[in-house]
Simulated scan of single mutants.
Amino acid sequence: MIKLRDIPFQKIRDKLRIKKPWDNVIIFVLNILIAIPVFIIIHQNIIDPNWYFQIDRILLFIAIVAIIQLILRLLRTVIIFCIVAYLIVLVFGSVSGNYGFAAVIEDYNYMIYSMSDSPNPQDLILAKLLPFPNKSKIEDAVEYENPKIRNFAVMATTKYFKDIRGYAKYRTTIQCFAVFKEINSRWNYVSDPKGRDYIAKATESLMYLSGDCDDHSVLMAACVKSIGGTPRLIHTGGHIYPEILIGDKNDLETINYLIKKILFVKESKGKQIHYHIDERGQIWLNLDYTATYPGGPFMSEEILGALTL
């Protein structure tokens, strides 16, 4: 027997109920919009088993979609309230500068891209390496506290990428990429005096942005360190090049997206991001003068020594 007090609620519920097939369409769209941020959060906080073609992440996303779809179907009678609540959350996030509409779109692009175009891993660099040649001279040459070096690096950060928004965690890395762009776009290779291994100080190479591979490495390391980055130099057979620490594998996915889709789109088009993993699982990107984008191909794969500055 229907009670009188239940009639108004039933009428309201019937008016709010969306007719088929639009209810299924709306549920599916709302599902995807909710599933994307949920997937990103879980993806970044669980161990990556490194399955082939990211099968584990694909299965994870399918499972999240299935669970949310079930929940939304159970809430079918109040689906409009779910939509309004979701929109309110996104509007509030957009206004407050937190997770909003732009972040949903960004996460969607990031998720699709990170699954379809992964970086190219390199061999693990072991702790036991040969002594780094000219170590003391190079450490002295990396004048990262010199005002000229600092001012040059700051100038580069105002010239490139200063309008990038939404990546506060990676601000220093992006600024170091600006330094990379400024130096590598202007670098002029000049050999050492015949029969002598000449190590130029960073301020010396800065005058004309010229020198050989170790001079470039010293200048790059000095500039990167002067604005808060962590550089290191890699010694190979007859070559030295700089690298920059970017974090762990989760950071690598974001950096990969930044380089290929925002910062160095033209330079990295159709190419992979190359990196090294050290004994602690940290990721280092190549900043050699031969590379046109951070993480470009290595000039030499044979690693003899590493010097963190």
Rank of each mutant, 00 (worst) to 15 (best):
R17H: 06
L233Y: 00
E106A: 12
L90A: 00
K225M: 04
D214W: 05
P193V: 02
S96P: 02
L287G: 03
T308Y: 10
M1H: 08
F92Q: 11
D215K: 03
K135V: 07
I88A: 11
K135P: 00
Y167E: 07
S185Q: 11
L60K: 11
A102M: 05
M155R: 11
V95G: 01
T308I: 08
T77H: 11
M111P: 08
L263I: 15
G228W: 10
Y86T: 13
S210K: 10
I112Q: 10
I40W: 15
V89H: 15
V218S: 03
G281S: 01
P297K: 14
I80D: 03
R17S: 07
Y113M: 04
E139S: 15
R57F: 14
R171V: 11
G247R: 04
E182A: 15
V65T: 12
G229Q: 06
D248G: 08
L252G: 11
D248K: 05
D288Q: 04
R57I: 00
N184A: 09
L309S: 01
W284A: 04
S114D: 08
W51A: 02
I105Q: 13
T292M: 09
I26A: 11
V104C: 13
I27T: 14
L75A: 14
Y208L: 07
K159E: 15
L309Y: 12
I277P: 01
T236Q: 02
A103M: 05
D107M: 06
V104Y: 10
Y99N: 08
V154K: 11
I262V: 13
Q69F: 15
T236K: 00
L287C: 06
N45G: 03
Y208K: 11
K128N: 15
K169D: 14
E204D: 05
F39P: 09
Y275C: 02
V38A: 13
K271M: 09
K11Q: 12
N184M: 04
K148T: 07
I112N: 09
D214L: 00
P49D: 04
I262Y: 01
I283A: 09
I71T: 10
Y144C: 02
K19H: 14
I67Q: 03
Y208Q: 10
K162E: 06
S268A: 08
F53C: 06
I83W: 06
K271G: 03
C223M: 06
N151T: 07
P147N: 09
E301T: 04
F177A: 08
Y198K: 07
N109F: 09
S96M: 12
Y52H: 09
T290G: 02
Y52I: 12
S205Q: 08
A168F: 09
L258S: 12
E267N: 00
I46C: 02
D14K: 08
A168P: 03
L307C: 01
N31A: 05
I62C: 12
K181M: 03
G238Q: 10
Y86F: 14
N50F: 02
V65K: 02
P231K: 07
L258E: 13
L75H: 02
P133M: 10
I67W: 01
L124Y: 06
T173M: 13
D117E: 12
G296P: 01
L33Q: 04
I227F: 01
W284S: 06
E182F: 14
L252Q: 11
N151G: 09
R73E: 12
L74D: 11
I244Q: 14
V84Q: 14
V78Q: 07
A153L: 03
R5N: 15
M155F: 14
A153K: 05
H274G: 07
I2E: 15
R232G: 07
I244S: 13
I32D: 01
L287V: 01
